[in-house]
Nucleic acid binder design. Structure first.
Lengths: 139, 139
DNA sequence: GTGATTGCAAATCTTTTGCACTAAA
DNA sequence: TTTAGTGCAAAAGATTTGCAATCAC
């Protein structure tokens, strides 16, 4: 059997189906870049470049649309630390970030390594969706 | 004496001088809007609108430049929660934020009401500049 | 087939920049 | 004066949108 080559693709494909997204050629290519391998933080522009470099024809507009669909489907998390661009994080589990002010790079901090204590109750009628901790570091 | 009318302006003026910024007509007008009264979170566009509404002629470019000068001078803090625009926070003391996902509004959480425990050491060669905690809430 | 998806180009939005003009010290 | 600051219009990014063509089911 061709497991080592085909299984990873099928997993990605199933993941799209499970999210209710048709596994089109473009979505598969992007999902493969995003979800095969390590957790990562990418910008739309960056992912677009990788897709082209990997011979997958995708337009930048589709990259943007796809990234947002993935976010809506819970496959990705969007992060904004500096104005300008958005980054998309393939790690959707509870975790936080180091932000390197000099380079603009993000690095995950596993959720269990940070404890946020004593957060005040949210205004009534609202509930806490998520708590983001960004540790800004510099040289 | 005309203290009740002139003192607040002088305080703002002194604050600009202390920061090494010439108290020009535009900077004074913006500083008055920002620092007279409650702490606030404003976008450049918003502040520009207020300035015009208050009969202070300022160009949007100058509003951007001025906001960044104020940030560099430590008079303001820049915040990016959602991609797109930046917000500027007149509260420069240690504190955190509620972010209302539905409306995009920010609300301060006094620093002493949040405790972040057990943050891992930053990678060597770097030091922690600041820790931002954003409590995202929704309806 | 039929509705979802894509590509492209144009539009939009936020922010920055170059440069001649104006104002503060 | 002299140098910093301003306005304007144009440029630069990042992201979104409209619509005809294409693809998955």
């Amino acid at each position: 059997m061709t497991a080592s080559a085909s299984r990873p693709l099928n997993i990605v494909l199933e993941r799209l189906r499970a999210a209710g997204l048709r596994p089109t050629r473009q979505r598969l290519a992007l999902a493969r870049l995003l979800f095969q391998g390590q957790d990562r933080h990418v910008s739309a522009e960056q992912l677009h470049g990788e897709a082209l470099a990997g011979n997958a024809r995708v337009s930048l507009a589709t990259v943007y649309n796809t990234l947002h669909q993935f976010v809506d489907a819970g496959l990705l998390r969007e992060i904004a630390v500096d104005g300008g661009r958005s980054y998309f994080d393939t790690n959707t589990s509870e975790h936080h970030h180091f932000f390197f002010e000099d380079t603009g790079r993000l690095e995950d901090i596993p959720g269990h390594l940070v404890a946020v204590a004593r957060v005040p109750d949210p205004p009534e009628g609202t509930s806490v969706r998520r708590i983001d901790v960004i540790v800004r570091v510099g040289e």
